[in-house]
């Protein structure tokens, strides 16, 4: 999300929307994502929008873009250093899996099946679970 380049010249007040108004920068980006079991999954590193062309200004009559997915993984680097990763390299959390947006973003699914959980799963299965006591529940 490089907002500066794509910002429209004149901002009209947003049309009245049903439900809560969320500010992408304030309520979505860099928020913790938690799965259906309460397990932290990742932080929202970026957002994927649909219905908007990158680098072309929007005009007033255009249909509003829609968030299609929360992004995570290496895409964080592009927010820090600039550039744009190839679409195939993005790790997506589809917006339809999001069940609530609060101080953290809650998913309605378990992280076990998500692409975003592969590093955690790999480290768990290849390293942590092979050390004696890796399954040991402290309580």
């Amino acid at each position: 999300m490089n907002r500066a380049q794509n910002a429209p010249v004149h901002l009209k007040p947003a049309p009245p929307a049903a439900g809560r108004v969320l500010d992408a920068q304030l309520h979505l980006l860099d928020r913790q994502v938690i799965d259906a079991e309460g397990l932290p999954v990742t932080t929202v590193d970026d957002l994927e929008l649909e219905g908007v062309e990158a680098d072309s200004p929007m005009t007033a009559g255009d249909p509003p873009p829609v968030i299609s997915a929360l992004l995570t993984g290496p895409v964080l680097g592009t927010r820090i250093f600039g550039g744009r990763p190839p679409s195939s390299r993005l790790i997506r959390l589809p917006w339809k899996d999001v069940s609530a947006v609060d101080v953290a973003i809650k998913l309605g699914v378990r992280s076990e099946g998500l692409d975003a959980g592969w590093v955690e799963r790999w480290i768990r299965d290849k390293i942590i679970m092979r050390i004696p006591g890796g399954k040991h529940d402290p309580h």
Binding site: L39, T42, E120, I123, I127, I128, G134, H136, P138
Partner: peptide, 21 residues
């Protein structure tokens, strides 16, 4: 906390793998 990984000693190491690693 910065990267949003699962963390905490109240979880078993297997449920906070990157934290323990």
């Amino acid at each position: 906390q910065f990267f949003g990984w699962s963390w905490g000693k109240f979880r078993s190491p297997g449920r906070a793998a990157r934290f323990h690693l």
